[in-house]
Design a protein around this nucleic acid. Structure first.
Lengths: 226, 226
DNA sequence: GTAATTTGTGATGTATTTGTGAAAATAATT
DNA sequence: AATTATTTTCACAAATACATCACAAATTAC
């Protein structure tokens, strides 16, 4: 069932939308301001967001911008006639449609259907077949080559990725310096073996608090242990 | 320049629309009833028709039906609130959008822009569902091979399209240079692998600000990430 | 406790990879 | 055939990553 987030500070509006949308077979989640919307948006997947322009604190546009950062989802704006024409008209916020207040619920339902069917299955491709390793706040997506520490994307150099990927794939195993170097650098590497230490250092600094998973085995090598 | 046919029996309405639309850079042709509209439609190519629902003799819906027989063109209906909701909602007439009277000219302008950019204003065939990917102000229509940046159509060379389409269809995935080349150029391509860089450069320049979605993965390749 | 060994870390010059403009080659149009 | 558009190649610039070194810190051996 499609999941819709309705953000408006007026309860009356939310109730009307909820009533009609549920009749049309949608699931509705309400938020009464931008911050609440962002919170709920982070926790749940939505197929559409309906967003009032005029709200106390975080207005509809700013909220939209934040939401789009988290995930690209269709957005319909609710606004008073003529209000902020340019912002809605511009494409930089990625607004899919808007409805002028006061609106007929039927009109809104129609636009909701149009917007969602337009997007079609484009979002369904997400989450497909990504090979992901997670432990605590460390997320390693092997498919996209993205490493996340406490929700923040971490930029790593190729060697850091390779080293981390290799160690995670061989986690729980004592990896000798020799094995690490031949497997990550290649059997034909004939450089200084202290280079490994340097890359472990760099990797640790990228992992922040999760550096603790890179255990030093004195006289042997290293082990990834979550 | 885009050509728009405005059909309404009220001269005042036609004049207002003409004034705003010409300001936005469109060419406007007026018709005051359905028959006149059909005549003019036969003689000239239009990118959009704006059609009042309530007209003497031939009403908006019948006119729309006739026009669609001649050529499938985007249509925006003008109607009083709640008027004939079901017919508009049903979409069997191929109506792209509608605006409730009384409307703000700005609102109409916005919907015009949206509808036309959606179609890509080409002689699109009737009824076929276009496969569209959209993120922010970047719209990619796989079916008609049209890419739009902030509402502006972007001209791309075949290779740019191929590369962009491939990357979007495999978005979120780290694509190695090798994979990109064999999949976009073909397994039998045996040229310089720096050719890829050049095409990435061209594609980035075509995408303008949305070049940010083409992420470089040093030592690996590229990734499309919205 | 001291020396020896091993690992951590900052700094740095070099090497590698990618970005980019321009020219050359190829393909498509007219 | 001539013109135009597209693709490829190439050379150099810019950005980034890497390997190495020197010294500090930690651990182990004696």
């Amino acid at each position: 069932m499609k999941n819709i987030l309705v953000v408006d500070d007026e309860e009356k509006i939310r109730i009307v939308i909820k009533k009609y949308a549920e009749f049309e077979g949608y699931n509705i989640v309400e938020a009464e301001d931008g911050m609440e919307a962002i919170d709920k948006f982070k926790k749940e997947d939505f197929d559409l967001v309906i967003l009032d322009v005029m709200m106390p604190e975080l207005d509809g546009f700013s909220t939209c911008k934040e939401l789009k950062k988290i995930k690209d989802v269709p957005v319909i704006m609710l606004s008073a006639r003529g209000e902020e024409y340019d912002k809605i008209h511009g494409f930089e916020l990625g607004i899919d449609d808007y409805v002028v207040k006061p609106f007929s619920p039927k009109e809104l339902m129609m636009r909701m259907n149009v917007v969602m069917s337009r997007r079609g299955n484009q979002n369904s491709l997400k989450g497909d077949e990504h090979e992901i390793y997670k432990t605590g706040g460390l997320v390693v997506d092997f498919t996209s080559r993205i490493v996340t520490v406490d929700g923040e994307k971490v930029d790593m150099t190729p060697k850091e990725y390779d080293l981390l990927f290799y160690m995670i794939k061989n986690r729980g195993i004592a990896l000798t310096r020799e094995k690490l170097i031949t497997d990550v650098w290649g059997y034909d590497y004939y450089g200084d073996d202290r280079t490994l230490d340097t890359h472990i250092k760099l990797l640790r600094s990228s992992l922040g608090e999760y550096r603790k998973y890179l255990v030093t085995l004195r006289g042997v090598g290293y082990r990834f242990e979550a």
